[in-house]
Write a protein that binds this DNA or RNA. Structure first.
Length: 846
RNA sequence: GCCGGAGUGGCGGAACUGGUAGACGCGGGGGACUUAAAAUCCCCGGCCCUUCGGGGCGUGCGGGUUCGAGUCCCGCCUCCGGCACCA
C-alpha cells in the first residue's frame, strides 16, 4: 500500500491517537501494580487474585524484531484480559543486558559496553512504548546494572555456601574465535552456537553450578507444570536423559584398586569380554606406569585430546582404541578381561569407564570386531541356541543364557536379580545415570557479572563478604580477548586483600554466563530497587509463580531449565516459597519471511517500526496475532497486514456512523421482541463475547478471537448499511454491537479501541472497564438448524424452534421432498435424532 | 535409532465434546460508484459432472469402529522439532 492515509476526517489517524493514548497511560501509571518491595516500606498484600504475566526479557540489541512484537503482544492481550477480569496484574519488562554483542562492539570501537548497552536499552524501550504495551514501567530492570548484579553475585555466594558451586579443572568446550569457554548447551553440532567456529576441548580450571544435584527434582517437578507444552517437557526430559542401571566395581588385576562402571544392562555382565576407559580417565597414567604400552597409550590420549569434539562424538566414526596391557576382574565370574583406552568412552558421563558387552551393544560389537576381541552371547531370542554366533549386536528382548544363576530369566528380571546379587557382595548397586552435565558458568569475558571471589595464595578461594558486594566491573581500556578475561588487565582492581587473612590476593577475573542473570530476573521485578536484599519473601510469595510465561521455544532447554534449577535452590534455601517459577508456559512460533526465518544476513527482515509508521501499532499487533495459531511458525505477508488495517478502518466507520439515538445499556430480550434483525445482532454480540473470552482466557487462540470480532463487525456493518436496523430497537442493537466490538478489541488494538470508546462517551479508562460478560438469555437461539441426513449424507436442512420433540422433527424431516427423493421409497431401518443438531435416516443400501 | 508435534481450497487457517468441512483473512474473478484511479460497497470462488432441479467425489495413504469420522482405533507415508558413540 503506497497511498498515504487520506486527510478525510472519517479516516482513523493512528499516529496521533497512539501517541495521545500512550501519553495518557504513562501519566496515569495505568499499568502499575502493587505490591513491590521497597526499602523501609510496610507491605500490604492485596486480597484480590493476582496474575503475573511475563514474557521473556529481550536482549537489548537496539532493535526489536517481529518475534518480540508477537511475544509481547500475546502477553499484553493476556494482561489486559486478566486486568479487566478482576485480577491484580503484574506485567513487567527488563533487559538481559550482559553478553557478547556489546562486548564485541566494544572490541571494534573501543566504546565501553556499558555505554553501548545503555543506548540500546533506550532504543528498545522507545520501540516497545510505540507498540503501546501495558507494561509496568516502574519496575523495569537491567541485568547489567550494579543494583541487579549485586544480587546475582549474592545468590552465587549462597550457592557457594550450599556446596552447589565447584571450581575444577575440566575438559571444557573452548571457542577459539570468541576466546571463551562455552556451556554444553551452547555447543550445537560441535560448533559454537554464536559464531559457528568449531569447538575445541581444553583442560582448564572452571566454575560450575551443580545442576546435576537437581536432575531428579527437575524431572519430578514436571508434574507441577501441567500447562507446559508437551514438546518442551520432552526436550527437557531428553536433555536430562535419565537412565536406570547399576554401578559395578571391577577390581584391577593386581588388586591395587577398583574401577567403577555405570551400565544400564547389568543383566549382561556375564557377556563383558573387555573393559574400556576414557582417555581422560584419571586411572590411565597409573595403569600404564612403566609398562611397555606406556608410550603408545600416552600418544593415543594426546591424539584424543586434540580431536575436535564434533568428530570425536560422531557415531559413524570407526572405533579407535589402544590396549593398556592391564586387566580387570569381572566380579560375576572372576574372569580377567583386558583394559583398553577408547575415545568413544566419555569421561563426563557415568564413571568414565565401561564394561564392554559386544554381544549386546552395537558400539562394543564394532570395537570387538575391529580389534579381534571375543564376543559372547548372553541373551537368546525364543528358539535360538544359547551358543548361536552373533553377526551383530543383539539388543532385542530374550532369555538370559551363559549367565549362571540368571539363565532362563527375562531381561528385566535378570537386571533386578543382578543388582541384588551385586549389592549383597558389596560389588555394586542399582543406580541412576543422567545425561545432564553440571553447568559451566565461568566466561573469560568482560561484560558479565564478576564472580565474587578472591584467590588467596594462603587461603585459596575466598568468597567476597556480602557487605563488600557488588564486585563492580572495573574500567578497562582494551576489551580484546587474550585467552583470559580482559578483567585481568585492570591491575588496580585485580590486586586486593584476602577477606580471610588480609594478605595480598587477586580477584577472580572470570565473569558469569548471562544465563545466570536471567535465571532469577522474574524475582527481582518484585523488588527492583530494594537495596538490602534481592527480593522480599513476603512479596514473591504473593506474585510467584508466574501465572503465564511466554517466549520462544529456542529457550526450551537452556533458560527454562536454568530458571527452574535456580528456583528450586532458592526454595531449598528458604528464600522463595515456590519450587517452580513458571506455572504455565506458552511457546510461540517464529515469524518467517520469504520462506525463511527473518535475519539480517538474509536481508528479509521487516522492521516493526516501518509497519507502525505505515499502518499504526494496532494494525501490527492485530496482524501478528491473526497470522495463525500463536504456537506455530507463520509467514509474513504485507497484504495480510493491509487486511487488518482495512478491518480497523471498518470498525472506525461503524462507530463513527452510529445513529444519534440508541446509546446506553445492553437492551433486554423484551425490548427487542419482534425486531428480528436487532435481536440477531445482539445475539451475535453476546456470542462473540463468549467466544473471545474463551479464546483469550482459556485457549490462547488469538487468531480465532480476532476472526470472531471480525464476524461481529461484518454482521453489524452489513445490517447497518442496508437499513434493516433502522428502528429504535435496531439502533440500540447497533450501539450495543459497536460498544461490544470496541471493548473486545481493546486488548488487541488498545489505541483505536480507547479512542472509539471515548468518542462513544465511555471515558478514558477502558483499561479498567470490566470485561464484558455475555447475557445467557441471548446465547440460546430462538431457532436452530437441523441437518437432515439419509445414510449419513446431508440432504436438507430445517429451521425449527429449539427443544422440538424428536417425533415432530422426524415427521418434518420425512415430509421434505429432497429427503423423500433420497429415500426412494426404501424401508427406513433406523432413525437417529440428535436434539438440536440433526436427523439421520438409515435405509438399506440399494 | 529413540522421543515429541503436524499433514484440510491458490495461500494462512476454522471446525473446541464424533454430528452442516472450508468460518475469518489474503490472493483471484465479476459488478456498482468515479472523467479516471484510489478508497468503499455488492456478488462469485474445493474438485468433477449436470437436462441447472441437482448428483458424485473430497481433510497425506490403506484399512477399521460407528447411523455418522478432519476428529476415535490399527498399519503406513511425508514434513518439522528435540536427543543420539550417554554405556
Amino acid at each position: 500500500m503506497t497511498t498515504p492515509p487520506s486527510e478525510l476526517p472519517e479516516r482513523y489517524d493512528p499516529a496521533a491517537a497512539e501517541a495521545r493514548w500512550q501519553g495518557i497511560w504513562d501519566a496515569e501509571k495505568a499499568f502499575h501494580a502493587e505490591p513491590v518491595a521497597r526499602d523501609g516500606e510496610v507491605v500490604v498484600i492485596p486480597d484480590r487474585p493476582k496474575a503475573y504475566v511475563l514474557e521473556m526479557l529481550p536482549y537489548p540489541s537496539g532493535e526489536i524484531h517481529m518475534g518480540h512484537v508477537k511475544n509481547y503482544t500475546m502477553g499484553d492481550v493476556v494482561a489486559h484480559h486478566r486486568r479487566r477480569t478482576g485480577h491484580v496484574v503484574f506485567h513487567p519488562m527488563g533487559y538481559d543486558a550482559f553478553g557478547l554483542p556489546a562486548e564485541n562492539a566494544a572490541i571494534r570501537t573501543g566504546e565501553p559496553p556499558a555505554e553501548v548497552t545503555a543506548r540500546n536499552i533506550a532504543a528498545i524501550r522507545t520501540q516497545l512504548k510505540r507498540l503501546g504495551f501495558s507494561i509496568d514501567w516502574d519496575v523495569e530492570i537491567s541485568t547489567a546494572d550494579p543494583g541487579y548484579y549485586h544480587w546475582t553475585q549474592w545468590i552465587f555466594l549462597r550457592f557457594l555456601e550450599k556446596g552447589l558451586v565447584e571450581r575444577r579443572e575440566a575438559a571444557v568446550n573452548w571457542c577459539p574465535k570468541d576466546q571463551t569457554v562455552l556451556a554444553n548447551e551452547q555447543v550445537v553440532d560441535g560448533l559454537c552456537e554464536r559464531c559457528k567456529a568449531p569447538v575445541e576441548l581444553r583442560q582448564l580450571p572452571q566454575w560450575f553450578l551443580r545442576i546435576t544435584d537437581y536432575a531428579q527434582a527437575l524431572l519430578d517437578d514436571m508434574d507441577l507444570l501441567v500447562d507446559w507444552p508437551e514438546r518442551v517437557l520432552t526436550m527437557q526430559r531428553n536433555w536430562i536423559g535419565r537412565s536406570v542401571g547399576a554401578r559395578v566395581e571391577f577390581g584391577l588385576d593386581d588388586g591395587s584398586a577398583t574401577i567403577p562402571v555405570f551400565t544400564t544392562r547389568p543383566d549382561t555382565l556375564h557377556g563383558a569380554t573387555f573393559f574400556l576407559v576414557a582417555p581422560e580417565h584419571p586411572m590411565v597414567p597409573r595403569l600404564i606406569e612403566g609398562r611397555p604400552e606406556q608410550a603408545e597409550v600416552t600418544a593415543y590420549v594426546g591424539t584424543a585430546a586434540r580431536t575436535p569434539l564434533a568428530e570425536r562424538s560422531s557415531a559413524e566414526r570407526t572405533k579407535t582404541g589402544v590396549f593398556t596391557g592391564r586387566h580387570v576382574i569381572n566380579p560375576v565370574n572372576g574372569e580377567p578381561i583386558p583394559v583398553w583406552v577408547a575415545d568413544y568412552v566419555l569421561m563426563d558421563y557415568g564413571t568414565g569407564a565401561i564394561m564392554a558387552v559386544p554381544g549386546h551393544d552395537a558400539r562394543d560389537f564394532q570395537f570387538a570386531t575391529t580389534f579381534g576381541l571375543p564376543i559372547r552371547r548372553v541373551i537368546a531370542e525364543e528358539g535360538v541356541e544359547a551358543d548361536a554366533p552373533l553377526v551383530e549386536a543383539m539388543t532385542d528382548p530374550g532369555r538370559l543364557v551363559n549367565s549362571d544363576v540368571l539363565d532362563g530369566m527375562a531381561v528385566e528380571e535378570a537386571k533386578a536379580t543382578m543388582c541384588a546379587w551385586l549389592a549383597e557382595r558389596d560389588l555394586g548397586d542399582a543406580t541412576v545415570g543422567f545425561r545432564l552435565r553440571d553447568w559451566l558458568i565461568s566466561r573469560q569475558r568482560y561484560w558479565g557479572a564478576p564472580i565474587p571471589v578472591v584467590n588467596c595464595p594462603e587461603c585459596g578461594v575466598v568468597p567476597v563478604p556480602d557487605d563488600q558486594l557488588p564486585v563492580l566491573l572495573p574500567h578497562i581500556d582494551d576489551y580484546a580477548p587474550k585467552g583470559q578475561s580482559p578483567l585481568a588487565s585492570a591491575t588496580e582492581w585485580l590486586h586486593t586483600t584476602c577477606p580471610a587473612c588480609g594478605g595480598a590476593a587477586t580477584r577472580e577475573t572470570d565473569t558469569m554466563d548471562t544465563f545466570v542473570d536471567s535465571s532469577w530476573y522474574f524475582l527481582r521485578y518484585t523488588a527492583p530497587h530494594l537495596s538490602n536484599a534481592p527480593f522480599s519473601r513476603e512479596i514473591t510469595d504473593y506474585w510467584l509463580p508466574v501465572d503465564q510465561y511466554i517466549g520462544g521455544v529456542e529457550h526450551a532447554i537452556l533458560h527454562l531449565l536454568y530458571a527452574r534449577f535456580f528456583t528450586k535452590v532458592l526454595h531449598d534455601l528458604g528464600l522463595v516459597g515456590t519450587r517452580e517459577p513458571f506455572a504455565r508456559l506458552f511457546t510461540q512460533g517464529m515469524i518467517h519471511h520469504q520462506g525463511a526465518k527473518m535475519s539480517k544476513s538474509r536481508g528479509n527482515v521487516v522492521p516493526p517500526d516501518d509497519i507502525i509508521n505505515r499502518f499504526g501499532a494496532d494494525t501490527l499487533r492485530l496482524y501478528i496475532l491473526f497470522m495463525g495459531p500463536a504456537a506455530d511458525d507463520a509467514e509474513w505477508s504485507d497484504s495480510g497486514v493491509e487486511g487488518q488495517r482495512r478491518f480497523l478502518d471498518r470498525v472506525w466507520r461503524l462507530v463513527m456512523a452510529l445513529p444519534g439515538d440508541g446509546a446506553g445499556e445492553r437492551p433486554t430480550p423484551d425490548e427487542l421482541a419482534g425486531d428480528d434483525a436487532a435481536l440477531a445482532l445482539v445475539r451475535k454480540a453476546e456470542a462473540t463475547v463468549d467466544k473471545v473470552s474463551q479464546d483469550i482466557g482459556e485457549r490462547f487462540s488469538f487468531h480465532t478471537a480476532i476472526s470472531a470480532i471480525q464476524e461481529l463487525v461484518n454482521h453489524a456493518t452489513r445490517d447497518a448499511g442496508d437499513g434493516t436496523l433502522d428502528t429504535p430497537a435496531g439502533h440500540r442493537a447497533l450501539h450495543h454491537a459497536a460498544r461490544t466490538t470496541v471493548s473486545l478489541l481493546f486488548p488487541f488494538a488498545p489505541h483505536i479501541a480507547s479512542e472509539l470508546w471515548e468518542r462513544m462517551g465511555g471515558g478514558e479508562r477502558l483499561w479498567e472497564e470490566p470485561w464484558p460478560a455475555a447475557d445467557p438469555a441471548f446465547l440460546v437461539a430462538d431457532t436452530v438448524t437441523i441437518v437432515v441426513q439419509v445414510n449419513g449424507k446431508l440432504r436438507d436442512r430445517i429451521e425449527v424452534a429449539p427443544g422440538m420433540a424428536d417425533d415432530a422433527l422426524l415427521e418434518m424431516a420425512l415430509a421434505l421432498p429432497k429427503v423423500e427423493a433420497a429415500l426412494g421409497g426404501a424401508e427406513i431401518k433406523r432413525k437417529i435424532v440428535v436434539p438440536g443438531k440433526l436427523v439421520n435416516l438409515v435405509v438399506a443400501r440399494p
